[in-house]
Nucleic acid binder design. Structure first.
Lengths: 247, 247
DNA sequence: AAGTGGTCTAGACCACTAC
DNA sequence: TAGTGGTCTAGACCACTTA
């Protein structure tokens, strides 16, 4: 496979070549990729080496293997890895899907802070929207979401409202943007006026604030969100610290 | 290697056999384990199969490989994986080691809640102690820690105070207890009287509450702690959601 | 130089899925 | 039955560490 990418070892080269094929949408979300045998021939390596590259992409939840069927580009589905990205559960441990409703939608320009997090220029155009999330019938969480217009051309409020599945699934189907990882920072904040209205709590009620950056392949940031959670009856599930990379 | 453990596949059997050798302290924290060649002979598998078993144990941070040196039982060291377990950083991202001081130490009996989390009988004897953690000179976090007396025989306040390194390193050296993973739940709480004194904040200041269970091999719970963090200038680093198991 | 883990090969055989 | 991924083998050669 020549040397189109760096990485030192053959399987890293293969992995990077596969990431490239994913980035260019040669392989799209949910589709099968060629068989291991074919890929080994294409990249000029043995099956074992090819498998080691796939092993890592599977460990990173970028590909999914199905014995007897083939290897697929991972797709965001409500009933599959949803709780990897939605980490709020009831204090007794009960996990349920949130009911999401769009509160507002507008275009604007990125503040310096948002721009830095998204890796775009300050004042670059972004979309901003707010989601209200309810669990067991009560609003528990407010998401303030920002995405760069350049990566989401033509995004509209109607499209957001009418999306059939999860937000990240929508990003994938409508914009070929695959969210494969996030980084989150948590602190305590207090409810603003808007938030206290939406969450039905008094002004200045302490809330859990989550600042998230979502990444696509090659750590490319694609979305920033600041969430506020009422943890009176719910809590946030942190990392499990086994099979976890050092900070 | 007969069939001392289940698991379906050869390499899972090997992995379980290795976990057993770790549990029985045949291989102790920080020590080298036998070479891949020797282990392959011992378990009656090929090098490749043996390596697959080790691969998983390395991915779980239970073993560490050093090319040219050998494979070692992972050991808790202040300068190595410390920040996998200590996830509080300054809001500008600055990571520093906390200065820890023991506030109190006592024996007692496990409440039903603590007992459930530790997997021991209610009213079983436990040690309880409180640590104060300072960053950049100011107290930022209070840890309330509980461990079962049965697993920490002879633990004393003096030993805790005089430990030369991190708490988990102390568990490993003094009690052969290897913490290999944790589970954490986060919510907002308010400062009790003791906490407001120690953290130097007004009573009822909202704090970040972290409930952690620490596990050794085979998901055996060994420690429970409830921490409270003043997030005025610090924050909690959440999971990275790539290479992360589904919940 | 000897011993270790790191990478890579070129297969074999099995289990699962679809037709 | 044919094609897929899953496991396993028995080596080879390389890079690194210690002596």
């Amino acid at each position: 496979m020549g040397k189109p990418t760096i990485g030192g070892t053959r399987y890293k080269e293969v992995k990077n070549a596969m990431l490239a094929a994913l980035s260019t949408q040669e392989w799209k979300g949910g589709e099968v990729i060629p068989s291991e045998k074919r890929l080994a021939e294409r990249f000029g390596v043995s099956i074992g080496t090819l498998r080691k590259a796939i092993d890592e992409l599977v460990a990173e939840n970028i590909l999914v293997r199905h014995q007897g069927l083939g290897t697929f580009v991972a797709q965001h589905q409500r009933d599959r890895h949803f709780f990897r990205f939605f980490r709020v559960v009831r204090q007794d441990g009960d996990k349920t899907y949130p009911t999401v409703s769009l509160v507002s939608f507008k275009k604007g320009k990125a503040t310096r802070e948002i721009a830095a997090m998204l890796g775009i220029e300050p004042n670059a155009r972004i979309f901003m929207f707010v989601n209200r999330l309810a669990l067991h019938g009560a609003t528990v969480m407010i998401d303030n979401i920002a995405v760069p217009e350049a990566r989401f051309p033509g995004l509209t409020e109607a499209a957001l409202r009418e999306r059939p599945s999860t937000l990240y699934n929508f990003y994938q189907d409508a914009f070929h943007i695959n969210v494969v990882g996030t980084e989150e920072r948590l602190r305590v904040a207090v409810a603003s006026e808007v938030e206290s209205d939406l969450l039905d709590v008094p002004r200045n009620t302490p809330l859990l604030e989550i600042r998230r950056v979502a990444y696509s392949y090659h750590q490319m940031p694609v979305e920033v969100r600041i969430s506020h959670v009422n943890t009176a009856h719910y809590e946030y599930v942190g990392p499990s610290a086994s099979h976890e990379e050092p900070l």
